[in-house]
């Protein structure tokens, strides 16, 4: 199987580069938009200790997005800041469930944010991310394998954090149970959008960039089943989560992404050529 050690080496293999770039956009956009949603929680988490911990997690996530965007920059895709701030919604590859607003209101006015949704979305995502990273450790693109090894160390803490919240809340009061159930059902409907690697998943696996999509999905389902069984909670369905609102990997998105991008690029767009 081919292996590449630098961005320069990839230049001569157009087919490989195409799939590598596609995968990197998915990884970058997923982390970027969820870190953005996390940053909107700043200052209004359930308690001050959580505010500090959640913010630390969001920073790590944003940091990972930066690493991926910088790898894309090295591959000639343009400036990392432009990739994060200027691409149109239809060019974005993140899963739809990750762009969804935290709840009614917005982060400045009347944020009626839903902590159960935050816990479930982040927990499910971080399980999936840990599985993905452990596959990327063996990626044929060595720079990606290298960064995956580092990210995995941080990922362990994130996963522990969300697992703790999930476990604490799911069997607590009746209201907590109800809210967690609603959040699980909501996330479940679209979570396949996170698990999929998009239209060229097979080609990515063939080139050794990452493992087969199905294998990664099965691992995620196995882990989720174990957690749910241990806690005595029923799965919403037995055949895995859905993708009701479309495939973000294919550029399909909701209005939530459009408004998120307007917010996060508001200042940058004043003058993208200026130094900020």
């Amino acid at each position: 199987m081919v292996e590449y050690n630098t961005a320069q080496e990839v230049e001569k293999d157009a087919a490989y580069k195409k799939e590598l770039v596609e995968l990197l956009y998915q990884l970058a956009d997923d982390d970027f938009i969820l870190a953005f949603r996390g940053s909107e929680w700043l200052g209004i988490a359930p308690h001050i200790e959580e505010d500090v911990a959640f913010s630390s997690i969001s920073q790590d996530k944003m940091g990972h997005a930066v690493i991926y965007y910088e790898m894309l920059e090295e591959l000639g895709e343009g400036k990392a800041d432009d990739l994060a701030h200027l691409r149109e919604p239809k060019e974005r590859k993140n899963a739809i469930i990750l762009e969804e607003v935290n709840g009614p209101g917005n982060y400045l006015e009347e944020p009626e944010y839903d902590w159960a949704f935050a816990v479930v979305r982040n927990y499910f995502y971080d399980i999936s991310k840990a599985i993905r990273l452990s596959s990327l450790k063996n990626s044929s693109y060595k720079p990606l394998a290298q960064v995956a090894k580092k990210m995995i160390l941080e990922q362990y803490y994130h996963l522990t954090h969300w697992n703790m919240w999930f476990t604490q809340l799911i069997n607590a009061t009746d209201e907590a149970k109800k809210r967690m159930r609603q959040a699980i059902d909501k996330v479940w409907k679209d979570f396949d959008g996170v698990l999929t690697l998009g239209p060229s998943a097979k080609e990515m696996a063939r080139l050794g960039l990452i493992k087969e999509e199905q294998e990664l999905k099965d691992k995620w389902m196995t882990e989720i089943k174990e957690v749910f069984e241990k806690l005595g909670v029923e799965l919403p369905t037995n055949d895995g989560p859905g993708m009701e609102r479309g495939d973000g990997r294919n550029g399909e998105h909701t209005e939530d992404l459009t408004t998120a991008l307007q917010t996060l690029s508001e200042v940058y767009k004043v003058d993208p050529a200026a130094g900020w």
Binding site: S39, S56, A65, A80, D81, L264, W276
Partner: peptide, 17 residues
Amino acid sequence: PKAPSLRRKLAIMSKVQ
């Protein structure tokens, strides 16, 4: 959320934390 570059986004998140 509006900080005008990736670097600034990371820095201000860390600062507010």
